[in-house]
Amino acid sequence: MTTQPSTRPDPAAAPPDHPTPIPTRWIGPLRITGTAASGELHVPLATYETPLWPSVARGARISRLVDDGIKTTLLDERMTRSVLLEAPDAETAHTAALTIHAQTEELRAVTRQSSRFAELLAIRHETTGPLLFVRFEFSTGDAAGHNMATLAADHLLTHLLTHIPGVTYGSISANYCTDKKATAVNGILGRGKNVTAEILIPQHLVTTRLRTTAGKVARLNVHKNLIGTLLAGGIRSANAHYANMLLAIYLATGQDAANIVEGSQGITYADDRDGDLYFSCTLPNLIVGTVGNGKTLPAAEEALTRLGCREERPTGDNARRLAAITAATVLCGELSLMAAQTNPGELMQTHTRIERHNGSPV
């Protein structure tokens, strides 16, 4: 008797490669002002959390009803990479650190040999026993800068091992950077773009469009975002859900999505100004770029082009524009959620209605 071969897939075999696009919608327009970006534009959000689209859209509508919209301010920008040097004792490690700082200009020249866009901005260090952690901070043009910073650090590390006596190789990456981890050092010193997005919403819009009051939002921000996060042991962070908007726009524009770990560290500030609501979101670790790995894939290329981040501008300005747009998008979603949570039942009722409408289980 001859048996026919089984047509069932082998469970041990690798699954076929069938790329599944993440559902993406263009939300807006939202109104932005500031030196890095200005005007009205739609933003792409790639997410499976469908209630995020109307939530950000509500914040976008508010921005169009305010004369200045969402004002964005770029406070700082730098990409970091830390290296580890090992010494026989703390004294040698400390002496090496002093020598490294004394050679800053020479190290800037070494950095320029690694890339025509990388510039060494600053050097910081920490010494623990015989271990010397050196944190290099670079400007990286329109690139997010992970690889550029690592390449520059590799050149610098080679130079240090050759010219600094008493130290040996520890690691090209020493976790004092800090990449894709929530840390105090990033919140304090920054990694990527440090951007604040802010808006002043007149009282009548707070009441009619957000269905709340400035006092309620400010009170909730203190109790939830500040005290609640403190009790939870949050690290340099006080916000409701920056990660939601960051992941959605990171995926839509070809960013390294794992950077939402440090990117979602940020502080929401809300103030009742005689009934008007001042609301801001500060993101010290916003890591975005408009060139580099992932940015030339068709969907990301289209998104960056539509966002105006493929224009002929001075080096770095396209990335700064994207950072400003991203921060404004975060504010839209943060504002909408915080307003909803001032009203009992509103958040869950909205989620249930939207998810059922889109066919998702609840």
Rank of each mutant, 00 (worst) to 15 (best):
A143F: 03
L151D: 15
L120E: 09
L132H: 06
L120R: 08
L132C: 08
L121A: 12
G141I: 05
D154M: 10
I123F: 00
P130G: 05
A143R: 03
T127Q: 13
L121S: 11
F136M: 03
R124M: 03
F133A: 11
L131D: 13
A143H: 04
A149V: 03
G145H: 03
T127E: 10
F133P: 04
L156T: 02
V134N: 02
L121R: 14
L156Y: 02
A144T: 08
I123H: 00
T140A: 11
T128A: 12
D154Y: 05
P130A: 15
T150G: 06
G141A: 10
M148D: 10
G145Y: 04
G141D: 07
T150S: 14
A149T: 05
L132T: 04
V134T: 07
T150H: 13
R124C: 03
S139I: 02
T150D: 11
L151N: 12
M148S: 12
R135F: 01
A149R: 01
L131A: 12
S139Y: 06
S139F: 12
F133N: 08
E126M: 08
G129N: 11
T127F: 00
A153G: 10
T140S: 14
L151A: 15
T128W: 05
L131P: 00
S139W: 07
H146R: 11
F138A: 06
H146Y: 15
G141V: 02
V134G: 01
L157D: 01
R135V: 10
A152I: 01
L132R: 07
L120V: 07
T127S: 06
L151R: 15
L156V: 03
P130R: 13
T158P: 01
V134F: 04
F136C: 05
H125A: 11
I123R: 00
E126P: 00
